[in-house]
Simulated scan of single mutants.
Amino acid sequence: AVLFCLCHVESKPSQVERIINGQNARPKQFPYQVIYDIEINKHWITMCGGTIIGKRTILTAAHCLDGTRGEMQRIKIYLGAVDKSNSTETGQQIVIVEAGSYVIHEEWDLCEIINDIALIKLPTDLEFNQYIQPAKLSEPKSLHADTNAIVSGWGLVNGHTSTQHLQYASVKTISNKLCESLKDSNKKFYSHWLCVAPSKSVTCSGDSGGPLVEKNSDGSSTVIGIVSFGVEGCPINTLRFFTRVSY
């Protein structure tokens, strides 16, 4: 199998990571989750997921935005949404920002898929409520090995049928040592990757940039990873790789 970056946005900006064998999310279940479209040549293209981490800040993946530079006009961000297609959905808000409203990690490398992290900056403060809330950030250098976690996003429900309803799946992270031993590629392993154990629920080409979170005892969520890349074709029971937020 070949490890690949799930967006390939330089040539195919419409291809984005999606969850296979996920479950339907409930309203207010993931208030930190966003999805965003980008405008190219006056057409909106669904792009990637992201995580609210502050009143003016969305955390996402660098590969979602890097290949669109020079072409993108605006970014449309859906907040508080479960059914993206329902503009009258209770709690759903849309914020549109200009193309230059993001920052990509200065050491992002598409070929190595390292430092796959970016921030979208909002022009005004978000008003938090029960539908829109930030996730906490992982503590620096936290490993989060053998941790029960949740990944969420919009996308394919059976490998080929798309959905407008937010999906989620429970997964378990594994140690870097185990991940490196399981990967069937000659690609160099980087410690700031965070891997989840193979299972029947996998992210695949629209969840990119979205959150991998750990639930806290007080009911809040801590974002520990950003959906980054995996095995081409998104087969079940294969490793999925996330950018480690604590790195």
Score class of each variant (00 low, 15 high):
C204L: 04
I40N: 08
S138I: 03
I120S: 00
D218A: 13
K12L: 01
K76M: 08
Q93W: 13
C195N: 14
T46G: 11
D37H: 14
P140D: 12
D109C: 09
Y32C: 00
T68Y: 02
T173M: 03
K12Q: 01
C179K: 03
N216D: 05
D146M: 13
S246W: 13
S181K: 09
E139Q: 15
I96V: 14
R244A: 02
A61K: 07
L65C: 00
R26K: 10
T238N: 12
I58W: 02
E107G: 12
S142C: 07
Q167G: 05
T203P: 00
F189I: 05
R244G: 00
A169V: 15
I45P: 12
W193C: 10
E112R: 14
C195M: 14
L59Q: 07
S191L: 05
G80T: 10
L178C: 04
P140M: 12
A61V: 12
F30T: 10
G230Y: 03
K76F: 04
G230L: 03
T163G: 06
I94T: 15
S175D: 05
E180D: 15
Y247I: 04
V171W: 06
G49E: 07
K183M: 14
I96K: 07
E127M: 08
G219R: 04
H144A: 07
G233V: 02
R18H: 08
F128R: 12
L126G: 03
N21E: 07
H105T: 15
T238W: 07
K55S: 14
T68N: 11
E89P: 04
Q15A: 04
H192R: 02
E39N: 14
I224Q: 00
I120Y: 00
S175N: 08
